[in-house]
Amino acid sequence: MNTSADQLKKIEAQEYDDLVNQTKPKPTVLKNCIWAFVIGGLICTLGQIILNFFMGQGLSKLDAGSATSVVMIFLAALFTGLGWYDVLGKHAGAGSIVPITGFANAIVASAMEYKREGFIFGVGARIFSVAGPTLVFGFAVSVVIGLIKVVFG
């Protein structure tokens, strides 16, 4: 008795889910991809220009790469502070999240958001509330890759 009632409920939920999926607006995948490609590409191009500039000034490729990261992170933080990066992110999606600038945006946005709860329990405790998972799993993967290199390298 109970199981058939459960089953009925499940079928009803499934039917409703189908109805929802029919009704929901479809995500604009193609448009999002084009925006992500163009904006993501522009961010990377800017990075390349800065890299070339530093290399032209006589830095080694490794040092120029580090300097470029610093500049890109600074720019993203600045744009976040000025309230521009979220406008960019709204259109660009993955195009502005995936590059290093997206990471800077996540940290600065959190810092700005939680400043009102003070520097310890606000900024300090919650600055990585969005970027935290990237760090945790980034570190985990780097450890695994390191181990693989030690064993097989």
Partner: peptide, 17 residues
């Protein structure tokens, strides 16, 4: 937004629904 979703200045795309 800050309680249920993301910080205000975070560059995220909202879903169509």
């Amino acid at each position: 937004e800050r309680q249920f979703r993301f910080p205000a200045e975070q560059g995220v795309q909202r879903s169509m629904s």
